[in-house]
Amino acid sequence: MKRPFVIVCSLFAAIFALGSDPPAVRVEPTDSVGPRPLEKQTRTAVIRDYLQAWRGLSGAFEQNRADLLDPDFVGAAKEKLAETIREQATQGIRTRYRDSAHDLQVVFYSPEGLSIQLIDTVEYDVQILDDDKVQTTQHVRARYVAVLTPTEVRWKVRIFQAEPK
């Protein structure tokens, strides 16, 4: 009974690792984002950097390497994700996150230009591996709140939190 399960899991792990098409991204039009008008270039840059952050996150959690978060995350978001990676590593766990769809909306751009808030209804698959053995794969649809702040060359995610649907 266990053998076919392991075989199917291994097959799926291979499919999971190799079959990673870029996620479908939909950006909702933004009429007003609060006190500051949002320029098209800024919006494009923020969304590009946010999606890149998901790729960085995926690699960091799969390889249990907190340093892979550095280019995309900063502040509390980075500290929390890095702590989770340390917990994973301590317990021999790895997780594979594959985002398949993002439905994004820019909801707030602060007046001094130092923060932008996004709401992302994201679909992703999570695979949990314990001692390199796949324990489960789950498809998740969740709503994330992300706050990005500008750094020297790019926007970085400072707050990253799922909220109940």
Partner: peptide, 25 residues
Amino acid sequence: RSAGHYLAVLVGDSSTENGAFDVTA
């Protein structure tokens, strides 16, 4: 302590059960 969406997976000798819940601030 960390708010977010969590998966709960119970892996027994012969079964695996899944669920999910949210942690709010």
